[in-house]
Amino acid sequence: MQLTLDAVSHRYADVTVLSDISLTIPEGQIVCIVGPSGCGKSTLLRFLGGLERPDQGQVLQNGPVPQGCLNPLTYVFQDFALLPWRDVAGNVSLVLEDHGIRGTKAAAVIDDVLARTKLSDFRAALPKQLSGGMKQRVAIARALAVNPAVMLMDEPLSALDAQTRELLMDDLIALWTRAPFTAVYVTHNLSEAVRLGHKIVVLSRRPGTIREIVEIDIPLTERHAGDPVLETHQARLWQLMREEAEAADKELGHV
Protein backbone atom coordinates (compact mmCIF):
# COMPACT_ATOMS: atom_id res chain seq x y z
CA MET A 1 0.00 0.00 0.00
CA GLN A 2 1.24 3.46 -0.70
CA LEU A 3 0.33 6.71 1.03
CA THR A 4 0.01 10.08 -0.66
CA LEU A 5 -0.15 13.57 0.82
CA ASP A 6 -1.91 15.89 -1.62
CA ALA A 7 -1.33 19.64 -1.09
CA VAL A 8 -1.75 19.44 2.67
CA SER A 9 -1.79 22.69 4.71
CA HIS A 10 -2.62 23.20 8.36
CA ARG A 11 -2.94 25.95 10.95
CA TYR A 12 -3.09 25.92 14.72
CA ALA A 13 -5.01 29.03 15.75
CA ASP A 14 -3.31 31.75 13.66
CA VAL A 15 0.01 29.94 13.17
CA THR A 16 0.47 28.12 9.88
CA VAL A 17 2.41 24.95 10.67
CA LEU A 18 2.36 23.17 7.33
CA SER A 19 1.99 24.66 3.93
CA ASP A 20 1.26 22.85 0.67
CA ILE A 21 2.94 19.50 1.30
CA SER A 22 2.69 16.88 -1.45
CA LEU A 23 4.53 13.63 -0.96
CA THR A 24 4.22 9.95 -1.86
CA ILE A 25 5.40 7.12 0.35
CA PRO A 26 6.14 4.20 -1.95
CA GLU A 27 5.46 0.64 -0.83
CA GLY A 28 8.35 -1.23 0.77
CA GLN A 29 10.45 1.84 1.47
CA ILE A 30 11.42 3.79 4.56
CA VAL A 31 10.86 7.52 4.14
CA CYS A 32 12.57 9.70 6.71
CA ILE A 33 11.24 13.15 7.49
CA VAL A 34 13.74 15.56 9.03
CA GLY A 35 13.46 19.19 9.94
CA PRO A 36 14.07 21.73 12.71
CA SER A 37 11.97 21.63 15.87
CA GLY A 38 8.46 22.93 15.43
CA CYS A 39 8.37 22.42 11.67
CA GLY A 40 5.31 20.17 11.85
CA LYS A 41 6.96 16.75 11.40
CA SER A 42 4.86 15.09 14.06
CA THR A 43 1.68 16.79 12.86
CA LEU A 44 2.36 15.41 9.40
CA LEU A 45 2.69 11.93 10.86
CA ARG A 46 -0.62 12.29 12.71
CA PHE A 47 -2.30 13.22 9.39
CA LEU A 48 -0.84 10.12 7.77
CA GLY A 49 -2.31 7.83 10.42
CA GLY A 50 -5.68 9.57 10.64
CA LEU A 51 -5.25 10.77 14.23
CA GLU A 52 -5.73 14.35 13.06
CA ARG A 53 -7.33 16.01 10.02
CA PRO A 54 -5.55 18.68 7.91
CA ASP A 55 -7.32 21.99 7.21
CA GLN A 56 -6.62 21.72 3.51
CA GLY A 57 -5.56 18.95 1.15
CA GLN A 58 -6.05 15.22 1.41
CA VAL A 59 -4.29 12.13 2.67
CA LEU A 60 -4.85 9.17 0.34
CA GLN A 61 -4.14 5.48 0.70
CA ASN A 62 -3.75 3.41 -2.39
CA GLY A 63 -3.40 -0.32 -3.00
CA PRO A 64 -4.19 -3.50 -1.11
CA VAL A 65 -3.16 -4.16 2.47
CA PRO A 66 -0.96 -7.18 3.20
CA GLN A 67 -2.58 -10.49 4.08
CA GLY A 68 -3.66 -10.75 7.75
CA CYS A 69 -3.27 -7.03 8.35
CA LEU A 70 -5.24 -5.94 11.42
CA ASN A 71 -4.33 -2.26 11.52
CA PRO A 72 -2.99 -0.87 8.24
CA LEU A 73 -1.55 2.37 9.66
CA THR A 74 0.36 1.60 12.84
CA TYR A 75 2.35 3.97 15.04
CA VAL A 76 5.51 3.53 17.02
CA PHE A 77 5.75 6.32 19.58
CA GLN A 78 8.75 8.17 20.97
CA ASP A 79 7.73 7.43 24.57
CA PHE A 80 6.82 3.79 23.77
CA ALA A 81 3.22 4.10 25.07
CA LEU A 82 3.27 0.72 26.82
CA LEU A 83 0.60 -0.08 29.39
CA PRO A 84 2.62 -0.22 32.63
CA TRP A 85 0.15 -2.67 34.22
CA ARG A 86 0.51 -5.29 31.48
CA ASP A 87 3.57 -7.48 30.97
CA VAL A 88 5.35 -7.73 27.63
CA ALA A 89 3.07 -10.43 26.23
CA GLY A 90 0.02 -8.57 27.56
CA ASN A 91 1.03 -5.37 25.82
CA VAL A 92 1.25 -7.23 22.53
CA SER A 93 -1.96 -9.12 23.14
CA LEU A 94 -3.79 -5.82 23.81
CA VAL A 95 -3.82 -4.98 20.10
CA LEU A 96 -4.93 -8.50 19.12
CA GLU A 97 -7.82 -8.87 21.59
CA ASP A 98 -10.02 -6.32 19.89
CA HIS A 99 -9.69 -8.15 16.60
CA GLY A 100 -10.93 -11.36 18.17
CA ILE A 101 -7.53 -13.00 18.21
CA ARG A 102 -7.20 -14.87 21.49
CA GLY A 103 -5.89 -18.10 22.93
CA THR A 104 -3.50 -20.19 20.89
CA LYS A 105 -3.83 -18.04 17.81
CA ALA A 106 -2.77 -14.97 19.79
CA ALA A 107 -0.01 -16.93 21.51
CA ALA A 108 1.41 -17.89 18.11
CA VAL A 109 1.47 -14.27 16.95
CA ILE A 110 3.00 -13.10 20.23
CA ASP A 111 5.67 -15.82 20.11
CA ASP A 112 6.52 -14.85 16.55
CA VAL A 113 6.89 -11.09 17.10
CA LEU A 114 8.75 -11.51 20.39
CA ALA A 115 11.19 -13.84 18.66
CA ARG A 116 11.66 -11.34 15.84
CA THR A 117 12.45 -8.56 18.34
CA LYS A 118 14.60 -10.85 20.53
CA LEU A 119 12.25 -10.54 23.50
CA SER A 120 11.25 -14.19 23.95
CA ASP A 121 12.90 -14.36 27.38
CA PHE A 122 11.03 -11.31 28.64
CA ARG A 123 7.43 -12.34 27.98
CA ALA A 124 6.36 -11.94 31.59
CA ALA A 125 8.37 -8.81 32.44
CA LEU A 126 6.59 -5.57 33.37
CA PRO A 127 7.59 -2.37 31.54
CA LYS A 128 9.10 -0.94 34.73
CA GLN A 129 11.64 -3.77 34.71
CA LEU A 130 12.81 -3.02 31.15
CA SER A 131 15.40 -0.58 29.86
CA GLY A 132 14.41 2.07 27.36
CA GLY A 133 15.72 0.09 24.43
CA MET A 134 13.81 -3.00 25.51
CA LYS A 135 10.64 -0.99 25.91
CA GLN A 136 10.92 0.31 22.37
CA ARG A 137 11.49 -3.22 21.12
CA VAL A 138 8.25 -4.22 22.85
CA ALA A 139 6.50 -1.31 21.11
CA ILE A 140 7.93 -2.46 17.79
CA ALA A 141 6.85 -6.03 18.49
CA ARG A 142 3.38 -4.75 19.23
CA ALA A 143 3.35 -2.86 15.93
CA LEU A 144 4.54 -5.94 14.03
CA ALA A 145 1.81 -8.05 15.65
CA VAL A 146 -0.92 -6.29 13.69
CA ASN A 147 1.00 -6.84 10.45
CA PRO A 148 0.73 -3.19 9.35
CA ALA A 149 0.71 -1.86 5.81
CA VAL A 150 2.61 1.25 6.88
CA MET A 151 4.57 1.86 10.10
CA LEU A 152 4.43 5.46 11.29
CA MET A 153 7.43 6.01 13.54
CA ASP A 154 7.56 9.22 15.56
CA GLU A 155 11.14 9.76 16.71
CA PRO A 156 11.24 6.18 17.99
CA LEU A 157 14.87 6.33 19.11
CA SER A 158 15.01 9.86 20.51
CA ALA A 159 14.40 8.83 24.10
CA LEU A 160 17.31 6.38 24.05
CA ASP A 161 21.02 6.78 24.62
CA ALA A 162 23.46 6.67 21.70
CA GLN A 163 24.61 3.07 22.17
CA THR A 164 21.11 1.69 22.48
CA ARG A 165 20.12 3.70 19.45
CA GLU A 166 22.87 2.05 17.37
CA LEU A 167 21.74 -1.41 18.48
CA LEU A 168 18.10 -0.68 17.71
CA MET A 169 18.95 0.71 14.27
CA ASP A 170 20.69 -2.57 13.50
CA ASP A 171 17.59 -4.42 14.72
CA LEU A 172 15.30 -2.31 12.51
CA ILE A 173 17.50 -2.94 9.49
CA ALA A 174 17.49 -6.67 10.19
CA LEU A 175 13.69 -6.64 10.50
CA TRP A 176 13.27 -4.74 7.24
CA THR A 177 15.71 -7.02 5.42
CA ARG A 178 13.82 -10.12 6.48
CA ALA A 179 10.48 -8.69 5.43
CA PRO A 180 10.55 -5.24 3.83
CA PHE A 181 7.92 -2.94 5.29
CA THR A 182 6.69 0.51 4.39
CA ALA A 183 7.50 3.15 6.95
CA VAL A 184 7.46 6.87 7.59
CA TYR A 185 10.21 7.70 10.06
CA VAL A 186 10.19 11.13 11.67
CA THR A 187 13.43 12.20 13.33
CA HIS A 188 15.60 15.18 14.03
CA ASN A 189 18.68 12.98 14.09
CA LEU A 190 20.43 13.06 10.71
CA SER A 191 22.61 9.99 11.29
CA GLU A 192 19.44 7.93 11.85
CA ALA A 193 17.97 9.37 8.68
CA VAL A 194 20.95 8.43 6.50
CA ARG A 195 21.18 4.96 8.02
CA LEU A 196 17.50 4.06 7.66
CA GLY A 197 15.99 6.21 4.94
CA HIS A 198 15.54 5.20 1.32
CA LYS A 199 14.25 8.70 0.91
CA ILE A 200 14.92 11.67 3.18
CA VAL A 201 12.48 14.55 3.12
CA VAL A 202 13.84 17.82 4.49
CA LEU A 203 11.21 20.19 5.83
CA SER A 204 11.79 23.92 6.25
CA ARG A 205 11.08 25.77 9.46
CA ARG A 206 7.54 26.95 10.16
CA PRO A 207 5.44 27.08 8.09
CA GLY A 208 6.77 23.68 7.06
CA THR A 209 7.32 23.12 3.36
CA ILE A 210 9.37 20.46 1.57
CA ARG A 211 12.83 21.90 0.97
CA GLU A 212 14.36 18.91 -0.65
CA ILE A 213 14.04 15.17 -1.04
CA VAL A 214 17.30 13.23 -0.88
CA GLU A 215 17.39 9.64 -2.16
CA ILE A 216 20.08 7.26 -0.96
CA ASP A 217 20.40 4.11 -3.09
CA ILE A 218 22.85 2.15 -0.94
CA PRO A 219 21.06 -0.99 0.37
CA LEU A 220 20.28 -0.68 4.10
CA THR A 221 22.45 -3.69 5.01
CA GLU A 222 25.50 -2.09 3.49
CA ARG A 223 25.23 1.15 5.38
CA HIS A 224 27.55 1.43 8.39
CA ALA A 225 28.45 4.15 10.82
CA GLY A 226 31.37 6.14 9.41
CA ASP A 227 30.67 5.21 5.75
CA PRO A 228 32.11 8.19 3.72
CA VAL A 229 29.15 8.32 1.32
CA LEU A 230 26.71 8.48 4.21
CA GLU A 231 28.92 11.10 5.87
CA THR A 232 28.68 13.21 2.75
CA HIS A 233 24.91 12.85 2.65
CA GLN A 234 24.70 13.74 6.30
CA ALA A 235 26.91 16.81 5.84
CA ARG A 236 24.79 17.96 2.93
CA LEU A 237 21.59 17.49 4.92
CA TRP A 238 23.12 19.49 7.75
CA GLN A 239 23.96 22.24 5.26
CA LEU A 240 20.32 22.33 4.25
CA MET A 241 19.03 22.31 7.76
CA ARG A 242 21.52 24.49 9.56
CA GLU A 243 20.11 27.82 8.50
CA GLU A 244 16.58 26.65 9.17
CA ALA A 245 17.51 25.31 12.57
CA GLU A 246 19.23 28.56 13.52
CA ALA A 247 16.31 30.65 12.40
CA ALA A 248 13.85 28.31 14.12
CA ASP A 249 15.87 28.51 17.32
CA LYS A 250 15.70 32.30 17.34
CA GLU A 251 12.03 32.20 16.48
CA LEU A 252 11.27 30.03 19.46
CA GLY A 253 13.07 32.53 21.65
CA HIS A 254 10.51 35.12 20.62
CA VAL A 255 7.44 33.10 21.42
Binding site: L51, N71, T74, F77, D79, A81, L94, D98, V146
Partner: peptide
Protein backbone atom coordinates in the same frame (compact mmCIF):
# COMPACT_ATOMS: atom_id res chain seq x y z
CA UNK B 1 -0.48 9.06 24.91
CA UNK B 2 -1.78 5.68 26.05
CA UNK B 3 -5.29 6.59 24.90
CA UNK B 4 -3.82 7.85 21.59
CA UNK B 5 -1.99 4.57 21.28
CA UNK B 6 -5.22 2.64 21.84
CA UNK B 7 -6.97 4.68 19.18
CA UNK B 8 -4.10 4.29 16.75
CA UNK B 9 -4.37 0.52 17.05
CA UNK B 10 -8.08 0.70 16.33
CA UNK B 11 -9.25 -0.33 19.83
CA UNK B 12 -12.97 0.17 20.45
Amino acid sequence: TLIRMGQSFGLG
